[in-house]
Design a protein around this nucleic acid. Structure first.
Length: 571
RNA sequence: GUCCCCAUAGCUCAGCGGAAGAGCGUCUCCCUCCGGAGGAGAAGGUCGGAGGUUCAAAUCCUCCUGGGGAUACCA
């Protein structure tokens, strides 16, 4: 890569000038990307050298530039010293040559740093009997993007989904279903949304030791024991309706899970694990707990006073099972950040009782999507569902629909769905993980500028140009005719892709890729505003420009694909 | 109380040891021209405050202030 080339020649120059005084190991040569007006790449070794050599950074940078200018490298057109920095400008010849290479490289951008590794990524994790809300949308969007980034680095990715099909939330819903005398066969999604909201409100409003709380606790136990046939029937029906509903959403979002885990399957394993480690867990007030305070954490209950495993115990079972079922090199769990500290306790417990699992398990979290009024909650019923959000974006898109491009009704519908989902995913992935997104429609969900639709639109325009073009061929076109600034800037941008993919994957940070995509789409828009393509009289140049358009479109498609955003040929 | 996370332009956010950035919003321009969900330009910041480390701090450390989360049988 070009960074390595620059690093090498700088190292060579340092060695030639000061070889007797310092070794190249004394200083770390970092090649970074400065603001574009300073150059394409910059090296700041002069600052570090100035301390070792007792000269000013400016003077040292100047000496290095003089040395670098003595022998030219074909990749570099110009080297400058400025304010202690050494700035490098790439040559047109280099850019043109690279473009011909990537124009024919179908796998451009991908790398093999994780080849042979198996990685499980657990994400989305919705709970049957509850709605699929925007929190799940966030988890799904982030998890899917990270899964794709890992695949782009050569890993075998197993997409996992852990769904909470037992627990108090289910009991609350069934309690209300029983009260309303709902028959199992009549249960639909709307029923579940309603009974859960009412059941959970009743639970919250009820006094301690009240009949309501007792009844719900009793149902919870019966679900666990599967001892009551009426409850079993309601449970089975509600569970299936929920899961089918989730499946529709996964398909819409473009996720296909390889494995589903259920909370109901983890209780036994988890309970055994806890009981099998009496040195780690302690009895306290009738429950079995882990005293986190000994490790600077807090105490958590693993088996409650009724003898039932809590979520914590089940999570132990789950993580154990993951490694029993698959030869994992890494297990990533994605959740909301409100359970960060809970997870720190859990990981500490895992470290103590299954260190081989713990050391390969990573928990990363995202912030909450918040309403301006406060925390989003599905308990009180003011939940924002994924379904609602997508349809709301769709209706906002209608206001700015383009004039007719000869699309059928079906194509239009598919377009608006994909643009809405793209806009939503883009705005989730746009910011670094872990921070809350204050969900204000007009502010946080942009459809212009740095947004999904902007990138999809740039792609559609390139495709539109290509669809009107005569035959052109990447093998015969000579890229040396591409000399305009906008052309060269676009090529530079294209060449960044491999590094961005690698970096975003390593850092588990899709937002770096999002930033790149915006810069790429912006370079494209600038490019086709400033030059003519189809009407260019110079035939060889027209051919070369078409190859550039085609390559740029392919790279934008790759990049958006890694975000889980679909491109559209026509908008 | 204790423990985590956060504070950068009017708003939403990048940057996380080297040269203050993007989008939106505001103000100017650009459709005889391959799609205006677009392009060109301008205004706008002592990076919450105070110390410290460093040749160099938005970035690292300490304290303070303000916001969010967690803190025993929900997840």
């Amino acid at each position: 890569m070009i960074r390595d080339v620059i690093g090498e020649i700088v190292k060579g120059a340092i060695d030639e000038i000061w070889g007797t005084k310092i070794t190249p190991l004394d200083v770390l040569i970092e090649v970074e990307k400065p603001q574009s007006e300073f150059g394409d790449y910059a090296v700041n070794v002069a600052f570090a050298l100035s301390k070792l050599l007792h000269f000013g950074p400016n003077e040292i940078a100047g000496s290095l530039v003089r040395k670098l200018n003595e022998k030219r490298t074909p990749e570099i057109a110009k080297v400058e010293a400025a304010g202690g920095y050494i700035n490098f400008f790439l040559s047109s010849e280099y850019l043109q040559k690279e473009l011909s290479k990537i124009a024919e490289d179908k796998n451009f951008g991908l790398n093999e740093t994780l080849k042979g590794k198996t990685v499980m990524i657990e994400y989305t994790d919705p709970n049957p009997f509850k709605l699929f809300h925007i929190g799940h949308l966030m988890s799904n969007t982030i998890g899917e993007s990270i899964a794709r980034l890992y695949e782009a680095s050569g890993a075998k990715v197993i997409r996992a989904n852990y769904q909470g099909d037992v627990g108090l939330h289910v009991a609350k819903a069934i309690w209300e279903m029983k009260k309303e005398k709902i028959l199992p066969r009549d249960v639909v999604m709307e029923t579940l949304a309603r009974v859960y909201a009412i059941g959970s409100k009743s639970y919250e409003d009820a006094e301690e030791e009240s009949a309501v709380k007792k009844e719900i606790a009793e149902i919870n136990e019966k679900i666990y024991e599967k001892s009551d046939s009426e409850i079993n029937n309601l449970y089975n029906s509600g569970r299936k309706v929920s899961l089918d509903n989730f499946e529709v959403m996964y398909k819409k979002l473009g996720t296909k899970f390889d494995v589903y885990f259920f909370e109901s399957e983890m209780g036994e394993e988890g309970k055994e694990t806890v009981l099998g480690n009496p040195k780690i867990f302690k009895k306290s007030e009738g429950a079995i707990v882990f005293k986190g305070e000994d490790y600077g954490l807090h105490t958590r209950v693993f088996i409650n006073s009724k003898g039932l495993p809590t979520y914590e115990a089940k999570e132990l079972g789950l993580n154990k099972k993951k490694f029993e079922l698959y030869p994992l090199d890494l297990s990533i769990i994605i959740t909301g950040n409100e359970i960060d500290e809970y997870f720190r306790v859990l990981l500490k417990v895992m470290e103590l009782i299954m260190p081989e699992v713990a050391e390969k398990t990573v928990h990363i979290s995202h912030g909450m999507l918040r309403l301006p009024s406060g925390k989003m909650s599905s308990r009180t019923g003011d939940v924002i569902t994924a379904e609602w959000l997508i349809s709301e974006i769709k209706s906002r898109l209608k206001e700015k629909e383009n004039k007719d491009k000869g699309l059928t009704g079906e194509e239009k519908e598919n377009n608006s769905e994909q643009i809405a989902i793209g806009a939503m995913k883009y705005s989730i992935l746009r910011q670094a993980l872990g921070h809350d997104i204050i969900f204000d429609f007009d502010k946080s969900l942009s459809l212009e500028g740095d947004s999904g639709p902007y990138a999809q639109y740039a792609y559609a325009r390139l495709k539109s140009i290509l669809s009107k073009a005569e035959n052109y061929d990447a093998r015969s076109a000579d890229m040396a005719v591409l000399k305009e600034k906008s052309e060269l800037e676009l090529i530079k941008q294209l060449l960044e892709l491999p590094e961005v993919i690698k970096y975003s994957g390593e850092k588990l940070a899709p937002h770096h890729l999002v930033k790149y995509i915006h810069e790429l789409a912006s370079a494209m828009n600038h490019f086709y505003e400033s030059i003519r393509i189809l009407t260019d009289e110079d035939v060889p140049r027209r051919q070369a420009r078409l190859v550039l358009v085609e390559t740029a479109a392919a790279i934008l498609k790759t990049g958006l694909g890694l975000l889980g955003v679909k491109v559209l040929e026509k908008i």
